[in-house]
């Protein structure tokens, strides 16, 4: 009656896979974004500070930049905010904010209290632009090269370790190649 043990055996294999997946889980890169290696979707959105000035990523061509998706309602973004400020101080790469599904007044108040790491902030209250970027949750950070190609996507709050391990090497390698 071996066959009655088959479900148990299959389940044991699945558990091993799950245990492995769990072990890998903090890396959060098991499901890579299909957008990596593809041109970044172009957007023009009103700026957070002033609705009359649009923010567009077309103007960023020729430069490396990080697009950081955030919102005041997002708890992990609060955790991430000191690290973003530290990154902004180093001046290695400009941070562009995409304020996602948020209210303008709350976002402005939030940045006044905590400091603003972003060079420009696009305001996307309806969340339609974020769909084109395949945003699943906040925070998410996209690294875009001077040719406008998404080279990397990071899900979750950026930690100092992640910055050193996942961001800096890519930026340095890329900037060495492009000679800037």
């Amino acid at each position: 009656m071996i066959r009655y043990f088959a479900p148990l055996a299959v389940f044991a294999v699945i558990v091993v896979i799950f245990a492995f997946g769990l072990h890998q889980a903090p890396r959060k890169d098991l499901v890579p974004s299909p957008l990596i290696g593809k041109p970044a979707p172009s957007f023009t959105l009103p700026s957070l500070a002033n609705p009359a000035t649009p923010v567009s990523n077309a103007a960023l061509r020729g430069h490396w930049y990080l697009l950081n998706v955030w919102g005041t309602w997002c708890i992990s973004c609060r955790i991430e905010s000191p690290e973003l400020l530290a990154i902004a101080r180093t001046g290695v790469v400009p941070l562009i904010g995409l304020d996602w599904k948020d209210s303008r007044s709350a976002a402005i108040r939030y940045l006044k209290q905590r400091g603003n790491p972003y060079q420009q902030i696009a305001f996307d209250p309806g969340g339609l632009e974020a769909i084109h970027w395949g945003v699943y949750g906040a925070p998410e950070t996209f690294m875009v090269n001077p040719q406008g190609i998404i080279v990397y996507k990071y899900i979750g709050p950026i930690t100092p370790g992640a910055w050193a391990r996942d961001f800096l090497p890519r930026l340095q390698a890329g900037q060495a190649v492009s000679g800037s």
């Binding site: 799950f18 769990l22 889980a25 959060k28 098991l30």
Partner: peptide
């Protein structure tokens, strides 16, 4: 558990998955 990333993901925290 944070094993799969998706639109429905809850904030993963250590210990929950285990």
């Amino acid at each position: 558990s944070g094993v799969l990333i998706s639109v429905h993901s809850f904030v993963a925290s250590p210990g929950r998955g285990e």
